[in-house]
Amino acid sequence: MADLVDSMLDLMRRLPPTQVEENVASLVAMCPDYADDLLGSVDQPLKIMTDRATGKEYLACDYNRDGESYRSPWSNEYDPPLEDGTVPSSRLRKLEITANEAFDTYREMYYEGGVSSVFLWDLDDGGFAGVVLLKKVLNAASSTEPSGSWDSIHVFEAAERGRQAHYKLTSTVMLQMTDRAITASEGKESRDSDKPDAKREGEVVLSGSMTRQSEQDLPLHDQASHISNTGRMVEEMEIKMRNLLQEVYFGKTRDIVYDLRSIDDLEKARRQRELQKELVGFIKR
């Protein structure tokens, strides 16, 4: 069993990130007995669902799934309805409601849109765990504008130790961007002819995921302190991961693209070479 699951996970790491949902579904269809192990180990883009009772949107993932149903953080009900679905204790449910309100404000401040959800569950050792989900989708207004999505999954465990609590946070960010552009060819041949400039259509797809972990001991004054503590850790982690994406991943991609392709047209490059030859000829005289 372990070898088969490891092989499926190894295969997923080699397949295109943009097709993770289709690939997971294919593996589950081939090995249905290992569906739970695979779904619990592979991060997939978050799905947006609507709470039937409140009309509010929430995010669905493996952490609020029970069978084929997903629990809403707003009404605490499953969709499709599930009579014996797992729900948090009454004490934890109150904390979950407050956490959803707090991170909804965080989402509006940082993302200016999107959807957020927080789910909590009890642990056997007396502590609790939870997940903070954030998703923002950019839809292209036209065929030449960029589109993409950002998915954040922050899983944490909290263990109370007197007036302090120990937190373990595992954060995963999935980013997908598609940029389409249509440009006119700028070669000498197209300019001298009577025909309009030829058009070139290109598409650049950038996608992938990043996972980071952190642990901290933070003061605990009351139950509400859990929300402020985890909120601070999530905020710091997201800032760190955004900086890594900007400086390392996007910066490296930009350098590679500029090395592979010149942004100047061929005619301009030809004129520069001719000018250099003329200058060299004048110097030699």
Rank of each mutant, 00 (worst) to 15 (best):
V205P: 04
R270H: 11
I283A: 12
R285E: 04
S26Q: 13
K199E: 12
L15P: 01
N229A: 01
K136I: 10
D84C: 07
K47W: 03
Q176F: 08
V248W: 03
S117Y: 09
A129R: 00
R161S: 14
E96S: 01
L260R: 12
P146N: 00
K240F: 13
P80L: 01
V204Q: 07
I263P: 03
R285Y: 01
F119R: 04
N229L: 15
R14E: 12
T170D: 11
A198Q: 15
T183C: 07
E112K: 09
G231C: 06
E57C: 08
Y78H: 09
T144Y: 07
T86I: 12
V204H: 06
Y111W: 06
V234D: 09
Y111H: 02
I48D: 00
D51S: 01
N64D: 10
Q164E: 14
F250P: 09
M177Y: 11
N76S: 11
A181D: 08
D125Q: 01
D36G: 05
D79L: 07
L120R: 12
M8R: 00
V115A: 03
E238L: 13
E235F: 06
H221G: 01
F282P: 01
S72Y: 08
P16L: 13
G67M: 04
A25T: 00
L244T: 14
A60S: 12
P88Q: 01
S90E: 13
L218P: 09
R93A: 02
A2V: 06
R212L: 11
V24L: 00
R254V: 05
E101K: 02
T18L: 04
I48H: 04
E145K: 08
G127W: 03
S90Q: 05
R65Y: 10
Y111N: 03
S225D: 02
G162K: 01
A181S: 12
K252Y: 11
R232E: 12
S207D: 11
L38Y: 07
S214T: 15
E101L: 03
E189C: 10
D43H: 14
A25Y: 00
H154P: 06
V132Y: 03
Y58Q: 04
P146I: 00
G126V: 07
H166F: 10
